[in-house]
């Protein structure tokens, strides 16, 4: 017997494993989290036997001043981190193209390095570099004579916020640069040559040729990083633990705390759903962007 599968059927079969996994590990989990968030769950996740409380957990979340504070920090962190990462990443990517071929190869290898470091290990690294007594950063500032004694990078509120952002920028400028390298490589060389022949100066070339050509890539990379930064957890957990006070607590670290420190699965789930809702907004923009640029076989 010979089987003839039509193309849509084959496509369906090919997509099936991915779909099943994504449903089980993402969509089902959201539904489950949603169910948790409507129950009063203290030190248990058996929601069937626990009281159903409608939206009481959400009310608690929105009433808490610390939710709004962590939301503010999360948004500030995301904004600062992505903008700085874009600036640094773009600089590094442009430099790679600008320098000679030989140096460019070296630069690419160097730029990719911070990207491979796992976030929690990144947090460890910066904990040591920002050490209050023998941290490299404080030491450099002191030897340059800028300050008398090492600043308390992770204890003073304003410093702590920006130390966290700096640590994130250090690691993630790298992936930003890699994305932009891809974008730059895709700009046809003859456009440059044409601009050069016209006698355009380099700044003008950058503004009028490179930037517009690169803009879609920049936008997608920004959205990609933005979504990632909104979910930041590991870095905070390892570097400041949310301190000083609750100044550097992100929404994700709040949710985690409610789950595994306080055992309040209901309230933690409400936090998680709120994070999800915020991200969906950004994700919608991201996906519509991607969709517009589709060039698949129709």
């Amino acid at each position: 017997m010979k089987i003839r599968l039509r193309e849509p059927t084959i496509a369906f079969l090919f997509l099936l494993p991915a779909f099943i996994g994504v449903i089980v590990f993402y969509y089902y989990q959201i539904v489950q989290t949603g169910i948790y968030s409507l129950h009063n769950l203290q030190h248990t996740a058996d929601w069937q036997t626990q009281p159903f409380v409608w939206f009481k957990n959400y009310a608690t979340v929105f009433r808490s001043t610390y939710f709004w504070q962590s939301l503010r920090f999360t948004v500030y962190f995301t904004f600062m981190a992505t903008v700085l990462e874009l600036a640094v990443g773009l600089g590094m990517a442009m430099a790679t193209f600008w320098v000679s071929r030989w140096l460019g190869g070296i630069l690419r290898a160097i730029i990719i390095m911070p990207w491979v470091i796992p976030p929690i290990i990144n947090a460890m690294i910066w904990r040591w570099l920002f050490h209050a007594d023998v941290g490299l950063f404080g030491y450099i500032l002191v030897s340059l004579g800028l300050v008398d004694k090492p600043p308390l990078f992770l204890t003073e509120p304003m410093l702590a916020v920006h130390s966290v952002i700096f640590a994130d920028v250090w690691k993630n400028s790298s992936i930003m640069a890699i994305f932009l390298l891809g974008g730059l490589a895709a700009i046809p060389a003859d456009i440059y040559d044409a601009a050069k022949v016209d006698g355009a100066r380099s700044w003008f070339r950058f503004r009028k040729v490179t930037l517009p050509m690169l803009l879609p890539t920049i936008l997608v990379a920004l959205l990609f990083r933005g979504i990632d930064a909104l979910r930041t957890f590991d870095l905070i957990y390892g570097l400041t633990g949310g301190g000083p006070g609750t100044v550097t607590e992100t929404l994700s670290s709040f949710a985690y705390k409610y789950y595994f420190t306080y055992g309040k699965f209901g309230l933690g789930s409400a936090y998680a759903i709120v994070v999800f809702a915020i991200i969906v907004g950004l994700a919608a923009v991201y996906l519509s962007r991607i969709r517009r640029n589709m060039r698949f076989k129709e």
Binding site: T155, G242, G243, G245, T261, G263, K264
Partner: peptide, 23 residues
């Protein structure tokens, strides 16, 4: 208190905020 972990966290955060001059 059954809520000790949360209370301890709250106190640690608020007291720490006070001694670091944040509040």
């Amino acid at each position: 208190s059954p809520q000790y972990p949360e209370i301890a966290d709250i106190l640690a955060e608020e007291i720490h905020a006070a001694i670091t001059g944040l509040k």
